[in-house]
Structure formats: C-alpha cells, structure tokens
C-alpha cells in the first residue's frame, strides 16, 4: 500500500452496559481482527468500554487513565493505533466522557467531550464534567482531532480542529435513532450524514464516524459508521444495526487535491472570527 494510503478499521458494536471487563475483551478481539487485516488505525464508538447510559453506574465504571484495564488497550496500540472511549476519572474526581488515542504503546491524546447534551432523552451533564478544548495531534494520517458525538453537533468544534491543522477528524458516537417517523432516511441518521458530509467538504478533511449499535432500555443505536472524504462522498459505510468491523482506505492525496481545488481552509479569515467573537463576548451579548 502506498505511503499515502492508510487503512482504517471501525468497530461498530454493541457494548454491554456497565461491564468494562466484557467490553475490554471485545475491544481486544477487534484489535486482533484489525491487525490481521493490516489496518493501521482502529476506532471504537463513544463509551465503548462502558455502554452509553451509565447513569448511577458511572461511579463504578469510571477508570483513571493509568488503570490496568485502560493500560491493556494502550499496550495493544504497539500493533495498531487505537482510539477508544470510556468514562475517565480525573485526579480531582471529575468524570469525563473521554476518548484516548493510543499509538506505539503510549497515549498520544485524550479528548474530553465538551458538549454534554441534557435535552430530549439526554442527561449527560447530570453525571459528567465537560471538557474544554479541541486539540489536534499528529498520527500517520497527519494532524488529526477528535469530536465525541454531540461535540460534532456544534459548528465550532470541527472548525477549531480544522484551524488547528486537522486533516482527519474522528467522531466516536453513541447516537440513538431519535425519531423513526421522519420520512425516508430515518431521524438523526439523515442529519448525521448531512452534517458529516458538509464538514468534510467545507473543511477539506476526512471524517471517520464510528457509531455503536444495540439497545439500552428501549433506546436503539443505529450504527451507520463510515468515512467521508473531502469531496463529501462516503468512502466506506457500515450497514445499519449490525455489529461489524468495517474498513476504509484513506488516501491523503485526496485532501491535497481538494484543498488545492477548493481552498476554503486556506482562505478562512480567523482574524474576522476572532475580532467579532471578542466583541460579542465583551458586550456580553451571549450566554456562552
């Protein structure tokens, strides 16, 4: 495979709620499968180690990053880069929805979910503390960044990552089907697809979306994992509703071409954004 092309694996699966041990075993078995398939990066869904609606299990399933169970996955990254997600217990005992990017046996980056939804069926802020930044880090794919599920429903998140130099964005998610009555493509599924396609095109980057499947107390997670290229087309797509390990080949030359042909990122005027945001914040005309 050319040095420009990187095989990414996406583990679309159904975690067992509250059973870190069982989910860890599942993670490790996907690691073996992805290594055998010669993938370079393996991405897991949001809270793949714990399940999504942890509620009062939060205290039980939370792990500090140096916990042996977390370390097992970090060690496994000697063979393949791994992005996985769990309830992270910080030193000051705040609990975050976090994603760890591990490579070569150590942690390259931890992203803490910044946007914790508390509307509709969601209750995350009740249990979790919010992260406060979108940083990039360097991998074989170039500069990359992470948005966890709801992070991606805020325009500024991918914008900040792109301005920070990201050319690939990972989006681990636990996104439920919120309305099956919506015509055609169902509910949030259609919205997610539009969203990711638009980000990929506007910001000239690859988006790697990994959403879980399965049920939790009647809430159904649809999957629909896949990769969108900088032209807004889907390079790979998992089937909805089933556990599967899907692969995509990311060719960074596509980003090069897209960014030359349609240089939106180059032409972005961060000075305008900064000036106006400063003004808006100074005038206090926002609740942010």
């Amino acid at each position: 495979m050319s040095t420009h092309v990187h095989k990414v694996a996406m583990a679309q699966f159904s975690p067992v709620l509250g059973d870190v041990g069982a989910n860890l075993d599942k993670h490790l078995s996907y690691v073996r499968e992805a290594v055998e398939a010669r993938a370079k990066i393996l991405v897991f869904p949001e809270l793949g180690l714990t399940g999504y609606q942890t509620q009062d299990l939060t205290l039980e399933v939370a792990r500090p990053v140096h916990h042996p169970e977390i370390q097992l996955l970090v060690d496994a990254s000697r063979e393949i880069d791994i992005l996985f997600s769990f309830v992270e217990e910080a030193e000051d005992y705040r609990f975050y929805v976090s994603a760890v990017y591990a490579s070569g046996g150590s942690i390259l980056h931890i992203h803490r979910k910044a946007y914790l939804p508390t509307y509709g069926m969601f209750d995350e802020r009740r249990y979790f503390a919010a992260g406060d930044s979108f940083e990039t880090f360097r991998t074989a794919l170039g500069k990359t960044g992470v948005m966890i599920c709801e992070d991606a429903w805020h325009l500024s998140s991918p914008y900040l990552l792109a301005m920070n130099g990201a050319t690939v964005v990972f989006v681990p998610a636990s996104s439920p089907w919120r309305n099956a009555m919506a015509a055609e493509d169902l509910g949030s599924h259609a919205f997610w697809r539009q969203l990711l396609q638009t980000y990929a095109q506007l910001l000239g980057l690859h988006v790697v979306f990994v959403n879980r499947v399965g049920y939790e107390d009647g809430v159904h997670f649809y999957g629909g994992s896949g990769v969108v290229g900088p032209d807004g087309s889907w390079i790979a797509q998992a089937k909805s509703n089933e556990e599967t390990l899907v692969f995509a080949e990311i060719d960074v030359r596509a980003t090069r071409r897209a960014r030359y042909t349609t240089p939106l990122v180059r032409d972005e005027r961060m000075d305008i954004v900064k000036r106006q945001l400063d003004g808006i914040l100074r005038r206090g005309s926002t609740h942010a």
């Binding site: 509709g120 069926m121 439920p176 089907w177 919120r178 309305n179 099956a180 009555m181 509910g187 049920y215 107390d217 009647g218 809430v219 159904h220």
Partner: peptide, 14 residues
C-alpha cells in the same frame, strides 16, 4: 416495562 423508542417523544424516555 421498557418501550422501544421510535418517535421523537417516547413514554418513559423523553
């Protein structure tokens, strides 16, 4: 009993 979520507002969920 748990209810399978289908609509935008599900009894017991949202």
């Amino acid at each position: 009993p748990i209810i399978a979520k289908l609509s935008s507002r599900t009894i017991g969920i949202d």
